[in-house]
Amino acid sequence: MSIFEVAMTSYWRSPDAQAMVALFVSPQVGGDWRAENVLTVPVFLAHVLDADPEVAVLLVDAVRGGDAVKVEMVAQALNYSHISARARLMEKLVGEAAAASMDENGADFATFIPTHPVHVDMLWAAFFATGADVYLDRITALLDDWLAETPLQVLLARAAAEPQVQAQALAAVLAKTAQTTLATHGRDCPPVRAALARRAAAMDGLGAALAARIGAGFQS
């Protein structure tokens, strides 16, 4: 992970919007972005701006006319955000046309429905920025559609030619992504373990059982 991703994943422990923005705009950050960062970092930044709108001006002024990737990320963060100056700052950053085409009400990732594995990472970004359990509960809920590797590969092969199984295949892929990321982040993140415990406590099927299994792995 890049230095910014490391800071992002631990941000929930001690939020500091000004320090995070300063790191994002610094010369040491950039050039090593992963492709999915273009989608996940704006979600994170949007929540940081919502929590401390004053840093939005600093962020826009720092990236304007500079690194094109950072400009794109900040523009999307403004589009997702709910700060009162979002349209004015978007115009300042990338022009009137972009400001005029912004989503009117920003984005609500608490109700966001993933349709691609990277969307699970976007829910993680929202959690890292806020520490809010709602995003973790959205991720653990995806476990309900988990499939073992062999049935999953069979289903994926069918999905290419059978539209009627594509939704089931997508749900299984999202469940696999949720399982992997929960196992990755849970060992060092008590809120993740608590979310798994909540899901396991439901005792209502495969998702609960898998949550219990993932949680048990942190005790070994």
Rank of each mutant, 00 (worst) to 15 (best):
A125L: 02
F127R: 04
A85H: 13
E149P: 09
L89Q: 01
A98K: 12
A157E: 14
A98H: 10
F112Y: 15
V69L: 03
A125M: 01
A98D: 13
P151D: 13
P117H: 07
S84N: 07
P163E: 00
W146I: 03
A99L: 08
A107M: 11
L152T: 08
L152R: 10
A97S: 00
S84K: 13
V94I: 12
L155F: 00
L123N: 08
A87P: 07
R86A: 03
F109M: 06
Q166C: 01
Q164P: 03
A148I: 15
F127H: 04
L152V: 10
G66K: 14
V69E: 14
S101T: 11
A87W: 15
A75E: 08
M90C: 05
D108S: 07
V165Q: 00
A157Y: 09
Q166E: 04
A129L: 07
A167E: 03
P151T: 12
A129I: 14
I113P: 03
A68R: 15
A77I: 10
A129H: 09
D108C: 06
G106H: 01
D67W: 13
A75T: 11
I113V: 14
Y80I: 06
D103C: 06
L152W: 07
K70C: 01
L142W: 10
A167D: 12
A160Q: 12
A75Q: 15
R138D: 09
A159T: 13
I83A: 11
G66H: 15
E162D: 11
D137Y: 10
S81Q: 09
P151N: 07
G95W: 00
T111K: 15
A87C: 11
K92E: 09
F127C: 04
V94A: 14
D133Q: 05
I139S: 11
N105S: 06
V134C: 03
A157P: 02
A161Y: 09
L156S: 02
I113N: 08
R86M: 02
A125T: 02
F109G: 06
V134H: 05
F127G: 03
W124F: 09
H82L: 01
H119A: 05
G106M: 01
A99Y: 12
V134I: 12
A77S: 10
M73F: 12
E96H: 01
S101V: 03
A87N: 06
L142R: 14
A129K: 07
R158P: 00
F109I: 15
L93C: 08
A132S: 13
W124E: 02
R88Q: 11
L89T: 01
Y135I: 04
L152K: 08
L143G: 06
V71R: 15
A98L: 11
E96K: 08
A132P: 04
A160P: 02
R138P: 01
A160N: 02
L136F: 03
D144P: 01
Q168H: 01
T130Q: 12
N79P: 05
E149H: 10
T140D: 05
P114W: 14
V154K: 10
L78N: 05
E162Y: 09
T111D: 13
E91T: 01
M73E: 10
D145P: 02
G106S: 00
A126R: 15
A126N: 08
D121C: 05
G131H: 12
H82Q: 10
R138I: 02
